[in-house]
Design a protein around this nucleic acid. Structure first.
Lengths: 123, 123
DNA sequence: CCTTGACCTGGAGCGCGCTCCAACACGTAC
DNA sequence: GTACGTGTTGGAGCGCGCTCCAGGTCAAGG
């Protein structure tokens, strides 16, 4: 698969794909005769998972660590799971925080509704 | 209140307070005889709310818009409420997204648990 | 008086995560 | 054979949101 197709299917921009490869987040991609990147199906699964990790706000450093562990094979399975579990805990904490913040926001919005009504009544 | 106290109470660093004032996110603060910032209680409430907006991932641009509206008085109450409601909707959407991502992460973690067990059993 | 420490200003620097660019190499269609 | 489209590289640039720094001012304490 050529990079343009891979970009569309993975949801990562062409520039991002090359950038990720440069920093080692994606492994060095196989090349065709002319030196062009040629992606396979397993590359796609990995790129998509990287995209999910990013959507989960996992910073690049952590994704790099995960990627390095992955490249070291089955010996790092437990370490990788631990990393994911730590990030899961962070996500849960963030969700709790957001719940509280939404509640505060709702209070503020209700407060605005009151003030608008009052000023509307008095004019 | 001096800036160091205000920083501690608002949770914003001294540098951030000065930065916010520079870009217009905080209004020009009152000064004492020597030209030093002298904050009041209402400044504190506003700074704390700005902190919450930031914790809600509201970008600086949007916070600036909100701040500008606020400085224009009661005529902008409805606009400010609309802005907060739009951000509330974004937060809810993000929460939903995170729920899905956590589910995907759980699946991945379960997958790792399986693989670890298998390799443990076979050795 | 003189030191100390907190404050002031304008501006530079930084870490993140891309994004864009110039200059060049292919391979296919006409 | 030449134009075009798509790819390559290394490196520069960017938007965000601070954070840090140099060089200076001022008030209070010893």
């Amino acid at each position: 698969m050529k990079i343009s197709d891979f970009s569309r299917r993975s949801g990562l921009s062409i520039d991002t794909l090359r950038y990720y490869e440069r920093i080692g987040l994606l492994p060095r991609t196989a090349r065709d005769g002319g030196g062009r990147r040629s992606y396979g199906a397993d590359d796609l699964a990995w790129a998509c998972f990287l995209g999910k990790l990013q959507a989960m706000d996992m910073p690049i450093r952590e994704r790099l660590t995960y990627s390095r562990l992955r490249s070291e094979g089955d010996a790092t399975l437990a370490a990788r799971r631990a990393l994911l579990e730590a990030h899961r805990a962070a996500l849960i904490a963030r969700q709790e925080e957001l719940r509280g913040l939404v509640a505060a926001l709702d209070a503020k919005i209700a407060h605005y509704r009151d003030r608008e009504t009052q000023s509307g009544d008095s004019q």
